[in-house]
């Protein structure tokens, strides 16, 4: 289905969408020291995607990220579980954290911990879940039925 849209509306949505994505990335990275973290970041990104869905209908979301929600979920889970598994392989406790000094070009020195990898996993899973909900409850339910059930 195609909605009639105004260019201004689309532009606004895109703007908000971009802004929300940047915000979500900030929340993800800042989380360890400021309010935020993977959850909140992921939720904000998911909110942005949901907004896109509400504004643009189903077709947009389907191809929005060019990536399957499955993939996001699996990568996210793998990242999070990976941070638990890797230390064990090296004889440490699961989920042991390591901290690294990282030189960031613009922002200067920052301390990055392996917790960030974990948080990134969380982030991806939250986004993936939202995509899945939108795909399932939003898109799929608009498709025709084929199993003989009566559409009500």
């Amino acid at each position: 289905m195609r909605y009639r849209r105004s260019v201004i509306f689309d532009a606004t949505v895109t703007l908000v969408f971009d802004g929300a994505l940047v915000l979500s990335a900030y929340l993800l990275f800042a989380g360890h020291n400021q309010p935020g973290g993977g959850f909140v970041g992921g939720l904000v990104a998911a909110g942005a995607i949901a907004l896109h869905y509400v504004a643009g209908g189903g077709d947009q979301v389907r191809s929005l990220l060019g990536v399957q929600p499955w993939t996001l979920l699996s990568i996210g889970l793998a990242l999070a579980v990976g941070t638990a598994v890797v230390p064990v392989l090296f004889g440490a406790n699961p989920l042991d954290q390591e901290a690294y000094q990282v030189e960031l070009l613009v922002l200067g020195k920052a301390k990055a911990t392996t917790a960030l990898v974990f948080d990134a996993g969380v982030y991806l899973v939250v986004v993936g879940l939202m995509l899945m909900i939108l795909e399932g409850l939003g898109l799929a339910s608009d498709e025709p039925l084929d199993d003989g059930e009566v559409e009500r």
Binding site: S74, I75, A78, G82, A84, V85, V88, G91, P94
Partner: peptide
């Protein structure tokens, strides 16, 4: 030793992630 304890939790979880990635 640690591996024996966490293995039964983490191995299936890794498997779950992998199974999902392997999709179809």
């Amino acid at each position: 030793m640690t591996g024996l304890v966490v293995g039964p939790i983490l191995v299936p979880l890794l498997g779950a992630a992998l199974a999902m990635a392997l999709g179809r």
